[in-house]
Amino acid sequence: MIKKFIAAVALTVVALTTTRLAILVMTVFMVICGHAKGQTSTGQITWECTLKRKSPDEGEILMKARIAPGWHMYALGNSPNSPIKTNFKFKPDSSYQLLGTVTQPTPLSKFEKQLGMPVTYFENEVEFGQRIKLKGKNGTIRGTIQFMQCSDQVCLPPQDFGFALKILN
């Protein structure tokens, strides 16, 4: 409601300095935006995982999430006392060894009134990385990503995404 009110005020300011056509276009755009928000309730996050070679014996597992418009996905590092579950698990294998922990870009942050704590999250697209030391010529990296997503209206239960990456010479 407040967002819509601010949008309406902003529209008025713009409208005072532009043509009638611009007003109509913006009004239609605003109405469409409001409508589209309600249409994304099943928008799913899609994952793409790749292995990037940095040197003959070092690589990085890149895990890219594409987040549907109107949705957000929770970042690593949220309080264990919150309901947020985001984690990455890699199945140990003789062909590789993890170097450090999963890295992420700086997330967005907001104070979650109901939980009484700040929460961090991403919108649109985010890429996580995990550096690895390559120990064998062949092998498979298997992992599971557990993540959670919400829109302004609904939250989906935690989901698991499993992947397998072949280490090629």
Binding site: K4, T12, A15, T27
Partner: peptide, 17 residues
């Protein structure tokens, strides 16, 4: 011109109310 410009946002607010 101003009244015309204001009419559309006001109409939207009225619809919401």
């Amino acid at each position: 011109e101003i009244l015309y410009c204001l009419s559309l946002p006001l109409a939207i607010l009225l619809i919401m109310a």
